[in-house]
Design a protein around this nucleic acid. Structure first.
Lengths: 154, 154
DNA sequence: ATTGAAAGAGTCTCAGT
DNA sequence: ACTGAGACTCTTTCAAT
């Protein structure tokens, strides 16, 4: 760890990773300090670059984005990573891309409105990209859980 | 889509998925409506359950959580899904679990402080869980990008 | 449905401890 | 380093359109 964070800092991060709407006064009550102290700590965490902002928590399912899938990508040559990544970034349904060890060269996550859209991306868009040897798709039938990591000083 | 959302609703969602800190007045300026209108729309989106709250955007790398990996899990029987999911949930480093089609029965994402911790989870904790036949691990060497889906009415 | 203004709540600063 | 109070800003409500 690069910074000297204490238990209170971690408690604030943990709490606000789940719910960033809580007021400083209320969070202070919960953690037995004043709202002013919460404020000072959050300012410090922002200065350190640990807290980068807040994001809206949106229920994608209710917006019709039902289909989540993971794609393992085999490249012809691993040197093609950057150029393939650049092409994959152009596909808005692909929300995440990691360069990985193991079977696959890259690992992508894709969010679609329906199976037809997923098929279109897999069949039409990915096939056009030079350097992709083949792909394996894992469609999520159920998200068992999704949560934040447990932060602490150890 | 279950709801009647217009362009403005989607613009608000898109903007605030990236930055939920912006004030209603400022967001209104950006989208050429009053702050009051932004407020009404967000209230509506909350009532619909589309907006579920806000989350702190934390830089896990700077907190020392450097190691992200994906784990493909083979089960002995797919009926063991629930009991294995229950055990995996007890491991705090596992932040996400999906039940998937394809090669693997389940797909997990894990966040660790170092390779030693990852090895401990993979070798000691996962091996203890009854019903897991074997696992394949893909360590992320680089996150090329991670972003929100592009929402719209179509 | 949108607006603008007033009331209420929260953030931010700072002097005191 | 924490606190509490005052200044300031944002959210929330509401009457008018």
């Amino acid at each position: 760890m690069k910074f000297n964070l204490d238990k209170l800092d971690f408690q604030i991060i943990q709490e606000m990773m789940e719910n960033a709407e809580i007021s400083y006064a209320d969070l202070g009550k919960k953690l037995f300090v004043s709202g002013g102290t919460i404020h000072v700590r959050i300012k410090k965490l922002q200065e350190f670059g640990i807290v980068k902002g807040t994001k809206l928590n949106v229920d994608l399912k209710s917006l019709g984005y039902d289909v989540i899938a993971f794609i393992g990508i085999y490249l012809e040559k691993s040197s093609l990573y950057d150029s393939v990544a650049k092409e994959l970034r152009k596909i808005p349904q692909i929300v995440r891309l990691n360069y990985t060890t193991g079977n696959y060269s890259m690992f992508a996550e894709i969010v679609c409105k329906d199976i037809q859209q997923l098929r279109f991306v897999l069949h039409d868009e990915l096939q056009k990209i030079k350097g992709i040897e083949r792909t394996e798709t894992f469609i999520s039938l159920d998200e068992s859980f999704s949560r934040n990591v447990l932060v602490s000083s150890e």
